[in-house]
Design a protein around this nucleic acid. Structure first.
Lengths: 134, 134
DNA sequence: TTATGACCCTATAGCGTATACAGGGTCATG
DNA sequence: CATGACCCTGTATACGCTATAGGGTCATAA
């Protein structure tokens, strides 16, 4: 057997991914189906490892699987303009910015609510009161 | 028929909730099962409306359904200490704070990545390069 | 009176991103 | 040749809904 051939477990350990997640990526078209050994084990090649590393990095940066699929396709066509790549990344950044803004507004509301609580009995609780209809 | 009896559609309109969501809350033990009319329609009383409003407010503040279930139970025992209420709210606030911190770190990384992009061809793209394994 | 259309019912499947488990097969090591 | 680590497929679960199919009920208008 070729020494550069990897089992799914190797791929998992080398990328910090669970085995089930790798199979999930395959089923969802992010990772190409590898060839199989005689015993029907998946036999990965270095390219698979690179691709999975790419996916994991992009996931760590919060890209969706759809976005990653698009990024992978783009990175496979290395002569094309990278404007499309920039568009995906910028769109994602805008989503992240929006989430931050929303969560900061939320936190401000929670702060207001919690700071009012004097921790007596529920009947006087400002938190419950804030949540209850007028 | 009692004029204070409400159909599921009334409840939906008055709380800005979809009908399916109300049935979902019932199935998941957040909203008690109402009695039924002869035609098997759900017949809600004002208490249901109050409870649903509470749930929606709490959802708007990002509480999980589990947390809301707990908050509802606490608010039904109005003589008890509200320390438990405070604990749930504080725990949630801490989660929100962590999310904000994480997202801000993420945004900083995205900023770095995107700012490097000179939008030439993919082969030179710093975004793809950042994502690719060394 | 009947026909229309708005509303309601149940049951089931789907979204996204995995994770877990059951029930089995394969492989290297002692 | 037995053990245990690893692999396989298929299915179920998590969260918080949303959507759809296929039907029943009810109020209003002609």
């Amino acid at each position: 057997m070729n020494s550069s051939i990897l089992t799914i477990g190797h791929l998992a350990r080398q990328t910090g991914t669970k085995v089930e997640t790798i199979r999930f990526y395959e089923k969802n078209g992010l990772l190409p189906e590898p060839s199989r050994t005689e015993g029907n084990y998946r036999a990965y090649e270095p390219d698979h490892l690179n691709r999975l590393s790419f996916i994991r990095r992009a996931r760590d940066l919060g890209f969706s699987l759809d976005q990653i699929r698009a990024l992978l396709t783009l990175s496979d066509n290395r002569g094309q303009s990278c404007a499309a790549v920039d568009a995906i990344a910028s769109e994602h950044r805008a989503e992240v910015e929006k989430k931050i803004t929303d969560l900061m507004a939320l936190k401000a509301e929670l702060d207001r609510m919690i700071d009012q609580c004097e921790c007596g009995i529920v009947d006087d609780c400002r938190i419950i009161e804030t949540l209850s209809p007028k």
